[in-house]
Design a protein around this nucleic acid. Structure first.
Lengths: 236, 236
DNA sequence: AAGTGGTCTAGACCACGCG
DNA sequence: GCGTGGTCTAGACCACTTT
């Protein structure tokens, strides 16, 4: 294969095994010494590989125990990724209100599409997130039908689109841009969120870039923050 | 000193030199070999130290050239830190509308204060940020008067409170939590932002944790996002 | 050609977790 | 006591940038 850098090979090998679930969340990778033996190298090189997995949030290291696989291979500090999974005190549910279907691009996407995307159709789907049985977020998603097949809602891993991409298609999120604004809620959104039209609502537009060439994921979230502000935190 | 880990010593040494401007933005650190000689150690250890400075955003490395000091010692993916500095297309100005003064804690802070903070007074100040001469953000800030002296507005480095903390007091931001919501604008804020009361406004509450024991910085931002959404991006 | 960072080897000793 | 990860040494060779 590539075999350019030994540490890259080791890193890629374990990253893939983690993404595909061969090493599940909470399980331990082989010890540094075992990996060293398998790859006929030194611990320095093995550690370089593991350091990168650590930095990227795939594993954590426990002195005296080993390297444990972490939840979610990714921890971009993004509202859209971290937002509601952190709210563990509440009962959070997701309902797919529009199953993935072929569609035209929507004007509400406020990023500039690429040439290829504009020439293609897109796949659209909509989900509503509930906290304690109250609808809190309406989330619209789009992606180019040329870059990725239509994935039926039934195939979502644990109901998560991102997990599906990672585990079944080995596609990673490599970056994202988002725009946030406060705006009056439209009729349509107000109805879905059980609020009065024109009351203030938080709108997040996001574009995820992925490891698959030509594939961007576009999202538009409408959040009722009256009861539940969007929270996130950052540490180093 | 501590001298527990050699790589920590090296890292701390250069971090401090960067923070205090001894190594200015754009300048180069000594080569790995020079550092190795000065500290009577090996390149492996020197590289470990530099790797951490790299990871924390203090330097970038250029193969064949050296390690260059980067802008902003920190790059938490925080709206409040990155938000408006990124908007380079526009003319951005900051006006201090309330110079730092001793005050009581305000109810609009929606984080739970520590015992020590509650027992002390606080320092309060307010700034308004303009884009193209239009007021866009009102920013309130508080911190415990017991944890840090009152810093007069005239002493702000480049008008920035954070730069002042870092360069003059060697205080680092070690983490932050924020809560974001959309809400109707109050009379008071609407007046300062030249908008009609009750129109939707973006509110960001933030608590910064710092390297100084007992010192947290609290912020409350009110943003008119009608023309300028808050944007940020994340890459790996 | 000389200097810089990037990768790698082959060891060593220490600190932590667990049985 | 044993296996784990954490730190460190003393080299080597390669790739890149500059002079």
């Amino acid at each position: 294969m590539k075999t350019k850098n030994k540490y890259q090979d080791i890193k890629d090998y374990f990253k893939k095994k983690i993404q595909t679930g061969v090493y599940g969340v909470g399980s331990y990778l082989p010890s540094e010494n075992e990996i060293r033996a398998q790859y006929a190298t030194t611990r320095t090189t093995v550690r370089k590989a593991l350091d990168e997995l650590l930095k990227e949030g795939y594993i954590e290291k426990e002195h005296g125990r080993g390297s444990r696989v972490l939840e979610r291979g990714k921890s971009l500090g993004l509202l859209t990724l971290k937002g509601f999974s952190g709210v563990t005190d509440y009962e959070v549910k997701t309902r797919v209100t529009q199953k993935p279907k072929l569609s035209d691009w929507d004007d509400s996407i406020d990023f500039k599409l690429t040439e290829e995307e504009r020439r293609a159709n897109c796949v659209f789907f909509q989900r509503v997130r509930y906290i304690n049985k109250n609808p809190i977020v309406v989330e619209n998603n789009w992606y180019s039908s040329k870059a990725l097949e239509l994935i039926p809602a039934e195939d979502f891993v644990d109901g998560s689109f991102f997990k599906t991409l990672m585990q079944k298609h080995l596609i990673e999120i490599t970056g994202a841009e988002q725009k946030i604004r406060a705006e009056p809620s439209s009729f349509e959104i107000a109805k879905k969120l059980n609020i009065t039209p024109n009351s203030p609502i938080l709108n997040i537009s996001v574009r995820f870039r992925t490891s698959r060439a030509g594939l961007n994921l576009y999202g538009n979230l409408y959040c009722n923050t009256a009861e539940h502000p969007i929270g996130n935190s950052y540490f180093r």
